[in-house]
């Protein structure tokens, strides 16, 4: 890192007012902090927190199914419905299962490639690999999902490639959803793990090797523990992005539905925002639970 010291020399003060403001600021860290926080906090609270709170409140409303007018008297009916009807439990479990599987697959796939990128590849190869990992992000999500539809179809490339091993295409269904989602979100998992690995000093692993640890042992006992926050950071992306998805499951999921579909059907097709909001509570609760659980690991600083 280089700081141009000649340029960093303080320029002569121009406006006295600006000068005074600046020294005021230097003297008052609290004021500085408030000024820094004011804009982003206002934005997040006004745009996001208010919107989320309003959504939660609307879960307590009902809707006139014919005129589509919302009845704003408070009732727990929607909440009762999503907690008692078995449909919502089944779909929620299915969705969490798919999201968890996607995350596991992504992490398992990301670890070796990220390790190769961070620790083995030359600087030049590393640069090319980062580009190679990032490029698929730019092909539209929808286009990629439809490409997988084609790959997994009856007589598609998957079947062709798998038949010599006596395997068949899984067809459209939850397996296809896991494959497609894992594929789409993979770059978002590779990148934080790669960055996390770069921060693990080579000397540490080498020292373990010198002391007689096998590569596998040093990997398990030294690298992985240091990598946990990065892995969790990556998992937040894959897990949450899968949790709310309804488009991929429409394209390759066969007749299955996930939480996103239930929300979408209710808000899009049935115009029932209150029930949709109540259903949306399920992923909200799951995600907030997950985030608070992992907050202590420092993962949130590694996203």
């Amino acid at each position: 890192m280089s700081v141009d010291t000649t340029r960093a020399a303080v320029p002569p003060s121009r406006g006295t007012a600006a000068r005074r403001a600046s020294s005021q600021l230097s003297a008052r860290p609290r004021l500085r902090l408030s000024l820094l926080l004011a804009a982003p906090l206002t934005w997040l609270v006004l745009v996001y927190v208010v919107a989320l709170a309003a959504l939660l409140v609307s879960a307590l409303w009902t809707v006139d199914s014919f005129t589509g007018e919302i009845d704003r008297s408070l009732t727990l009916d929607n909440l009762k419905e999503i907690t008692t009807e078995s449909l919502y439990r089944t779909v929620a479990l299915r969705t969490v299962g798919v999201a968890a599987l996607v995350t596991v697959v992504d992490v398992l796939v990301a670890l070796p490639i990220a390790f190769y990128m961070a620790k083995v590849a030359s600087k030049r190869a590393q640069r090319i690999l980062v580009i190679a990992v990032l490029t698929p992000l730019w092909a539209s999500y929808l286009v990629k999902a439809f490409a997988w539809r084609s790959v997994l179809s009856d007589g598609g490339i998957f079947q062709w490639a798998a038949s010599p091993f006596g395997l068949d295409t899984p067809g459209y269904g939850l397996t296809a959803v896991v494959i497609t989602q894992a594929y789409i979100w993979l770059p978002y998992v590779i990148l934080p793990i790669f960055a996390g690995l770069e921060r693990v000093p080579n000397s540490l692993v080498d020292a373990a090797g010198d002391l007689g640890a096998s590569p596998w042992t040093s990997m398990r006992t030294i690298v992985l523990p240091l990598l946990v926050p990065a892995i969790i950071a990556g998992s937040i992306f894959s897990f949450s992005l899968t949790l709310g998805d309804y488009i991929t499951v429409n394209i390759v999921g066969g007749a299955n539905q996930m939480l996103g579909n239930l929300v979408y059907t209710n808000v899009g097709a049935a115009n029932n925002l209150p029930l949709a909001a109540a259903i949306a509570l399920i992923p909200i609760v799951i995600m907030i639970g997950y985030l608070t659980a992992v907050r202590r690991t420092g993962a949130l600083e590694n996203l």
Partner: peptide, 29 residues
């Protein structure tokens, strides 16, 4: 740490949640 969580929330919550919440806020409120 709550502020930290608040920054992450919009990406950590599923897009459909963010989507309907903002839709409702913009149009309804």
């Amino acid at each position: 740490s709550s502020v930290n969580l608040l920054v992450i929330l919009p990406i950590a919550l599923p897009g459909i949640v963010t989507g309907i919440a903002l839709n409702n806020a913009f149009r309804g409120i």
